[in-house]
Design a protein around this nucleic acid. Sequence first.
RNA 1: GCUCCCUUCGUCUAGAGGCCUAGGACACGGCCCUCUCAAGGCUGUAACACGGGUUCGAAUCCCGUAGGGAGCGCCA
Length: 466
Amino acid sequence: MPSINQLPVTTRFAPSPTGSLHLGNARTAFFSYLWARQSGGRFVLRIEDTDAERSQLRFRDELMAELRWLGLEWDEGPDIGGPSASYCQSERGEFYRELYAQLEAHDQAYPCYCTPEDLELSRKLQRMSGQPPRYAGTCRGLSATQRAERAARGLKPTLRFAVPGDKIIEFTDAVHGPQRFASSDIGDFIIRRDDGTPAFFFCNAVDDSAMGVTQVLRGDDHMTNTPRQLLLLDALGLRRPGYGHVGLLVGEDGAPLSKRHGSTSVQEFRARGFLSAAILNQLFRLGHAADVDGWLPPAAMSAHFRPLHLGRAPARFDESQLVHWQKETLGRMSTAEIRAWLGADDATEFVDLVRHNVVLPVDAAPWRAVVRGDLEPLGELEQQVIAAAGAEFFAAAAAAYAQANSDLKVLTRILKERTGRKGADLFMPLRVALTGTAHGPELAPLLKLIPPETARRRLELHAQNS
RNA sequence: GCUCCCUUCGUCUAGAGGCCUAGGACACGGCCCUCUCAAGGCUGUAACACGGGUUCGAAUCCCGUAGGGAGCGCCA
């Protein structure tokens, strides 16, 4: 549903297939997706696989699988094509070559024969003398004969963009507002590696423009990269997309989300049993202020997305909040859905009983054991409850069970008459003896699921021991 | 070092000069309900980084300070 004053916006997600889909990337992908959907525009998926060393097909497939699992469907992409195909940068060499030629023809780019060692040394020297570590421009003024001489020595050049020295680059960031940079602060940067592959600053900017992207949404860490890309686009006469830089997603300690914070990839959360709707509800509120509170079905989110309310400050990811959305999501699922999610072929009565005591599928295991297995050893609190009730109580309980069978109401009525106990004094010992813990789902239906033989044994056990 | 960005309860955030004795959500505590946990209802603790201005009035505007972050890569 496009809003009245918003033109269709084309956004994109442009991951490099060098690892699994990180929560932070998933969030920017999600915001981009929502923005496109909200405006009635398009969402493009582009794979930035220019690093042949680290890029892998399996990561690309995994990335797409996770995106789809989250429900972020793209309108153009490597698998479905589109007007700007190919959507893999490794297949766009021809397009890049033309642009390189254009830049070189206008002296806006030049071959650089400096070796990585040269460059590192130069940077080191600059740092030591308190200078910004920028490319010194060594190869910028090389004559044709000097270039030929170097090429003859077998040196393979990179291609550098000749940054104009005296420009002010201005743009309005969609989340930060007006920005101003001086080109004199930017060194000539590499736009083509010595193996002929395009470098990020170049192919990323050029593809966004060529693919008709009108709004680039990305992490804050790209903020100071933007003027470089704008310079490049201007030199090429390509249309500038709008840029918006979202605050990063960080861990509980404020450091960028990493392994030591536990799960960080969508795949890991999925494997643990978190639901996509839960993850989406959480991401929806990290670094973004929606216009409503409370759980939203994913399909309703684009209507409540507010691009102008994206956060500038880094947002901390707090798993306890994810757990909250997980509970909210679970509460809205049918028994059949939860049963499938638990993945253990449970009886529907069992599913209905434990669903409110479970956040992840693994949490169902203890209750499964209560119903069709053996109890865990009693904890300290549980032992106290058993001891306080006494052997006599359980003898009476076992006898009552013989009469009442698995009808807890009848069982407790009989026990109440015989022992004079009521309330927690009556129920707690029963709960502990029958389930092994002091907490859990409603006891009456739970008792019905415990095989009679097992229930009797559990009650009799305490009639003898204590 | 240089350039840029950021800073409201523990956490996510509302807030575009008076509607703010700063609101909501999560988490936490209490009460109610209840055999227990969960759910639900009620309720409590808790924040404008600091210092100067501007203004009748500032969380909101300006300038500094402090703290945090990013970029300056043949990685994206």
